[in-house]
Design a protein around this nucleic acid. Structure first.
Length: 384
DNA sequence: CTCCGGTGGA
DNA sequence: TCCACCGGAG
């Protein structure tokens, strides 16, 4: 029978069901998974919950010691709920993400107050409690009451991205939704504990981010990434956040074969180098593609010590990328009517343009000036 | 150094 | 939808 097509949708309604997937994971988990972690082999929801919260963003090896000490100090949910939050924080100290500890304490008090100290089995109810999201709720429900529910943590995302060749960033909503749909469809009819633990163990010990042990993977035969040699490229990494953008209006004053330069402060960007004088008040943050309007009065004031402006020409911006931000250099070319030959200003120098190549200038500034002076000389030559 | 990640809040 | 929270790993 042909695949159903939703009448109003451009895409097919995929059916991701495949019992052989969970069978492979469960079988592997029973033979090669982890079975003796301190929070395993129990259905005590307090023990399970505590472990799942500690394991958020945190590896097993880091959790082990904290888990043991925490339970020594707070053996039961009621002990935890009754304790001062400061004691909880103290036990958590060093584990990181301290909101987890505050939420843990709040959650304990809430479970005592709302549920008489008994965690609900329904993942939807668990997910309403502080610090428990959809994935953690599913894990707690699966391990503490055998409830069929899908987890979706970093391990699962990595395994799914590779096995199914999902070639898009999992942080995108539709990609994550698709993964959740797969996760729900692939749940086993029985054996949710071994399956859930198996996915976690697989991601943590075999399908690792770098150099996965594909030779030991029970899903190798069905893994798209393995088959196509793309384990290195999947899952698709988070697109690097666009670095902040700044603008700097740089004054290009060329007169009588000399360029006006300013010595930069010893510290900070381009510390101690010569550079073009910058117009104050024009370094704008996150302005995107919008160019700063140039303040003519500020311009006149800035140039005044060196002469009288005859004309101003804004040149095409140059983009310079640093590790932590992007600088748009807006060159502002100024022609002087009269050059002030007296004193000048401290920290400023007139440099012969034929010495630019050897001057201590930032690379983008040197390139800009060499281009400009080259051009202007060419233009001057052509005029004769 | 950079990258990674569940949850919750902006 | 974006990002802070933190510590560990590469």
């Amino acid at each position: 029978m042909k695949r159903l097509l939703h009448p109003l949708s451009l895409t097919t309604l995929e059916d991701y069901t495949d019992p052989s997937f969970s069978a492979a994971v469960i079988d592997w988990q029973k033979q090669h998974g982890r079975h003796t972690l301190p929070w395993q082999n129990t259905r005590n929801a307090y023990l399970v919950w505590l472990s799942e919260i500690m394991l958020q963003q945190t590896q097993v090896s880091a959790v082990l010691g904290y888990y043991a000490r925490f339970l020594e100090r707070f053996p039961t949910l009621r002990d935890l709920a009754a304790a001062p939050v400061e004691d909880v924080m103290a036990q958590w100290s060093g584990l990181g993400y301290y909101t987890r500890a505050r939420n843990l304490h709040k959650c304990a008090q809430q479970v005592v107050a709302q549920y008489d100290g008994v965690f609900p089995a329904d993942p939807a109810l668990l997910a309403e409690l502080p610090g428990i999201g959809r994935s953690t709720a599913a894990a707690i429900a699966a391990f503490s009451s055998g409830t069929r529910a899908a987890i979706m943590d970093g391990n699962v995302k990595r395994v799914f991205a590779r096995v199914f060749g999902i070639d898009a960033f999992p942080g995108e909503k539709k990609v994550e939704q698709d993964m959740w749909r797969r996760a729900e469809a692939l749940l086993p009819a029985t054996g949710i504990e071994a399956y859930t633990q198996g996915l976690m163990d697989l991601g943590a010990t075999v399908c690792t981010r770098s150099s996965p042990a594909c030779g030991r993977c029970p899903l190798q035969a069905r893994c798209v990434a393995y088959a196509t040699g793309r384990t290195k490229d999947l899952p698709v990494r988070k697109p690097k956040k666009t670095s902040p953008e700044k603008h700097a209006v740089m004054l290009v004053v060329i007169d009588q074969g000399q360029v006006l330069l300013e010595l930069r402060p010893g510290t900070g960007i381009w510390g101690g180098l010569l550079s073009l004088p910058e117009l104050d008040g024009h370094v704008l943050h996150n302005t995107g593609s919008v160019l700063p309007a140039i303040d003519q009065q500020a311009l006149t004031r800035a140039v005044a010590p060196f002469g009288e402006i005859e004309s101003v020409e804004t040149l095409l911006p140059i983009v310079h990328v640093f590790t932590h931000y992007k600088l748009h250099i807006v060159p502002c070319r100024i022609t002087l009517a009269h050059r002030n030959l007296l004193a000048g200003e401290a920290g400023f120098v007139w440099l012969d343009s034929d010495k630019l190549a050897d001057a201590a200038l930032p690379a983008p500034v040197k390139k800009l000036l060499l281009d400009l002076c080259g051009d202007s000389q060419a233009v001057q030559r052509s005029m004769f």
